[in-house]
Amino acid sequence: MTIKLELLEAALRNALGEQLQSLSLALGEATIVVKSHDYLSAMRVLRDHADLRFEELIDLCGVDYSTYGDGVWEGPRFAVVSHLLSIKHNWRVRVRVFAPDDEMPVVASMIDIWPTANWYEREAFDFFGILFEGHNDLRRILTDYGFIGHPFRKDFPVSGYVEMRYDPEQKRVIYQPVTIDPREIVPRVIREEQYGMK
C-alpha cells in the first residue's frame, strides 16, 4: 500500500468517524460504504472537509446486487455508487450507499452538493428505478416516456415487452408487442467442419 493511500485512509476515517460503515483498499483504490441515513451529510463532509476536498463528482450509477456472487448475496438489492475526485489532494474515492428498501429504493439526491449529479441520478432512476429524495426533476433520460420498467434490473426480461416503430400508414410512432423469436446462433467454426482448412 502506498503512503498516499494510507494518508487518504486516515483522512477518511478521521473526517467521517461514525458515518463510515466500512472502508476497503484494493487495487490502489479506496471504497467506503455509508448508511443511507448518513449519505447526504457524509457526502458534504467529503466535499468540505479540509483534509479531503472532493470537489468533483466524476460518476454516479445504480447497481442491482440481486444476482451478485451467483445469487448468494444477502444484503440490500440496490446501491448507488459514486466516484469522487479531489483536485487539491489528487486522490479519488468510491462511495457506496445501499437503499434500505428493495421494493422502493430511495436515497438522498446529491444535486445540492454537486449539480453534475442531476443527469447521473436521472439515469440511475431510469435504468434501475432508484428514487433520489430531493431531486427536483427526476424523470426518464434515456428510455422513451412510455417505457415500462427499468431495463438494467436483473429481473427485467432480455427482450423487453414492446417495441417501437414508425408506421408509414398511420404516419406516427406506434408500440406493439415484441416479436423477437428467441434463437441460438451457432458460430461458423462449430457449424462447418471444414471451416478454415482450405
Rank of each mutant, 00 (worst) to 15 (best):
E74R: 10
M110T: 01
P100H: 03
I130S: 00
V34P: 01
V45A: 05
S159A: 12
A124C: 05
V97D: 00
C61T: 15
D167S: 12
A124Q: 01
V186N: 08
R13L: 08
V63Y: 02
G146M: 07
V189F: 05
Y65H: 15
E121F: 09
R140A: 08
H89E: 07
M1D: 09
S109M: 02
L85T: 06
G69H: 06
G17W: 11
L142M: 15
I3W: 02
L131V: 14
F132R: 00
N14T: 14
Y166W: 14
K4M: 11
F125S: 08
G134E: 01
R96D: 04
R165A: 13
R92V: 07
Y39H: 12
E184I: 11
H150F: 11
R122V: 03
V189D: 11
K88G: 07
E18S: 15
M110V: 07
N14D: 11
K154A: 13
S41K: 14
T143F: 01
F147H: 07
D155K: 06
M197K: 15
M104W: 03
R140P: 06
V186S: 10
E18V: 08
M1I: 07
E18D: 14
A11Y: 04
Y161P: 11
A10W: 01
D137F: 05
R44N: 11
E18F: 10
N136A: 13
I190N: 12
R94N: 11
S66F: 05
T116I: 07
R191L: 12
D48E: 15
I113Q: 07
A11L: 05
H89D: 03
R44C: 03
G62K: 01
E103P: 03
E9P: 06
V189P: 04
I87M: 12
E56Y: 15
V162Y: 13
G129A: 02
V80K: 00
M43C: 15
A79T: 10
V72F: 12
P151S: 06
D144P: 09
R140I: 08
A26L: 14
D51H: 07
I190R: 15
A50T: 09
A117H: 04
P182W: 06
D48R: 08
I174N: 09
Y166I: 04
Y166T: 09
E184C: 09
R165I: 09
G71I: 00
E184G: 10
H49W: 02
I111S: 04
S159K: 10
D112K: 03
I3H: 10
A50K: 13
A10S: 14
H37S: 13
Y39E: 01
I32T: 04
A50F: 04
W119N: 12
I58W: 03
W91Q: 12
R53N: 10
D59K: 04
P177E: 06
Q194T: 14
R153T: 10
H83T: 12
V107Q: 02
L46I: 02
E9K: 15
M104N: 15
H49I: 00
A50N: 11
L138W: 01
I190A: 14
I180V: 14
R140Q: 02
E74G: 15
Q194P: 02
V63M: 09
F54E: 00
R44Y: 00
Y195E: 05
